[in-house]
Design a binder for these strands. Sequence first.
DNA 1: CGATTTTGACCAGCGC
DNA 2: GCGCTGGTCAAAATCG
Length: 546
Amino acid sequence: MSSKRKRAAIDLSLEAERKKEEEDHSAGDCSSKDGRVDKKEEQFKEQEEDPIEETAGEKVVEVVVDQGGDGTEEEIKYRTQQGEEMDKQSEEDAGDGDDESDGAETRAEDKHVVEATAGDGDDSQTIMVQDEVSAMQEEMEKMKEENLMLRRVVDRTMRDYYELQMKLAAYQQQPADEPKEPEVFLSLGATAATGGGFPEPKRKGQAARRPSVGSDEMDDGKGEDLGLSLSLGASSSYEEEKVEPAAAQHDMDVVGADGEAKGYALLESSKLLASAAGVTSQSVNPANRKTRVSVRVRCQGPTMNDGCQWRKYGQKVAKGNPCPRAYYRCTVAPGCPVRKQVQRCLEDMSILVTTYEGTHNHPLPVGATAMASTTSAAATFMLLSSTNSSSSISEAGGGSGTAPHYLSPYLLNSHHSSASPLLSTPSSMPASVVRGGAASGMQHLNLFGHSSMASHLKYPWSASPSHGSSSDQMAGSKRPFWSTGGDEKAATMADNVGAVMADPSKFSVAIAAAINSFMGKDGQVMAGNKDGEGTSSKSSNKWGGG
DNA sequence: CGATTTTGACCAGCGC
DNA sequence: GCGCTGGTCAAAATCG
């Protein structure tokens, strides 16, 4: 226990540090976090401003350059005595038009300025102004370039920072923790190495079809395939994704079917290996369905650590899998409706399939936010994808009601990747998998087909002890949640997700949706969720009251 | 001693 | 209606 708490403390401090760093650097993709980048740029600008100001002189000169003409008029405004204006300008430059309303206001103001300036009627002054304008334009050009460079630098810095952080965490944890699992990966489970993604019976036949990209199959050599897969489905009775092999099967099937077309997003590396993690998210209709997110992880311990505290309330042997299925409830908050099922995969006992259900109605522990983010992103993405894509699936609403609310900062970075998404349409899904019958639509997204990907995941939920209270946590579990253990490339989950999103715009939409859902719930997320909560359980949460 | 886990029993949904 | 199965309850056992 004490050790766990220590770990938690470390996680916290590191997390805080990370966040701080993040804010300071406000790096990442400009398009995804304009505001932050702007901050950084502001600082930079301030330094640059001085010289300019001197050049411009002391007088209060307002210059407005209207380069409009094609609708996207670009105005440059410089006020020698008001740095604010400069900031605004820089914001526009860097903002990529993210804040159009503000921009409009600014322009409106500028217009007035123009009029005022013109009204002077002083020719000499006008000439001076023109000269200054041209000079400033040049200045602005330079600044723009510098901005770009700076942005890149910041971005790189952030990446390096994450990498270092992960390495550090890995080093700190490695020695003590994992007697059983030598390499860390403890964190991310690897789905069956053999299978390439998830161990499933059907896989054999399908294997061949697996996207070459992922080289999943190649991984076999090493034994691990890291695949993170997401699948969203609608089902009135969430039977479909029962953690059992069937589910895996289904995943595989889906992937296999469309795998080629989609291709797995490859994340660099191969350094890490081993673990493959699969996330299957099933978002269901807001009405009476809940979100189910399934995570497959290679894990030696009884459960994988997701940062939350769970209490086991039941165990049962499900048909088709001799391995008992354990039922857990979130105990972080008394009335938290979130439950999870944990079961080992029949084909590969080392793989743990954890299925989360519901949404937390309380702030998540630091270590849990990552998972939440991941699942949220997964669900959101899937929902959006389903909506945007031609897919007939229209589950969109589900995301809002069920997605976890904590959006990890990592998510905001996801623009970098360039891999193509792996979406499989419902048609590819074997009906057998969806026992509930309501298989109206199931989307399967395979975020990672390659082992390397797993290594890049920043959410090694499997790494830490899954249950705060659990006594026999796997050794590896003591690592900070973000530590994948040895990962060098600091690709974030977001990156991973981003990789899936070939279309940046789509991703933005996803992020927006995620944020919306997050904001809407505002901590009390459960509201929407509760309805779906008691679906299958007869007793309505006796849990809370005992 | 309180919290958690274990485990047999109960209940509900579904298919036949 | 019956049987099967999944999910949950709750008393007892266990743990720290």
